[in-house]
Amino acid sequence: MKGYTLQNDTIVIKRELTELDVFVKDFLRALKKHCDYLIVSGFVSISTGRVRATEDIDILIKTMPKEIFEKLFLDLIDKGFWCYQGDNFEEIYAYVHEMQNIRFAKEGQMFPNMEMVFINEEKKAKHYEFTHPQKIRIKDFEFKIPPLEFEILYKEIILAGKKDMEDAKHLRVFFKDILDLNKFNECKKIILEDKKW
């Protein structure tokens, strides 16, 4: 018994969707039409069974030209999301340009929210996880997360708070059978190299 199966390199977890899953699924449905993404941090552990509260779901997105961001922003608004930072896409694009995080929640709600973290190729570690995604599926909800080994080490080495260490422990134990020592070494090198800067 493992609690999950692997189907063509996709991790499949047999459980019902939570309200949090549905929120992320709705957001991704709008976002995927405009850009690529990677879900990172707490939601990775929570979606695989860790029991803890969360208010925000972190999502990595590459910086993008204004015209693409305009379409993405307007589509999200059209699908019932609101942006914490403002209602005018021109103003919000300044955040994207400066690579400052922005957040979206459902209209009339504060939490949960999606925190968009903008990246580019200069952010080596983030760029690595973004370009080496792991697929995960729960019912009809499929999304991309970092390689498990990367996520574990990033939490242990870079974030290293209490909840991060607990998240990492959860992933280490739950996915013990599929974690790869060579991948750990590869990811550790990239994370430590990035940490120097």
Partner: peptide
């Protein structure tokens, strides 16, 4: 995490916890 591999019912408990948190918020 060890127990979760054996007992699928724990996922249902987790679901209840998350849904309640969102409703309360």
């Amino acid at each position: 995490a060890e127990e979760l591999k054996q007992k699928k019912d724990l996922f249902n408990q987790q679901r209840q916890f998350i849904n309640n948190q969102i409703k309360a918020s």
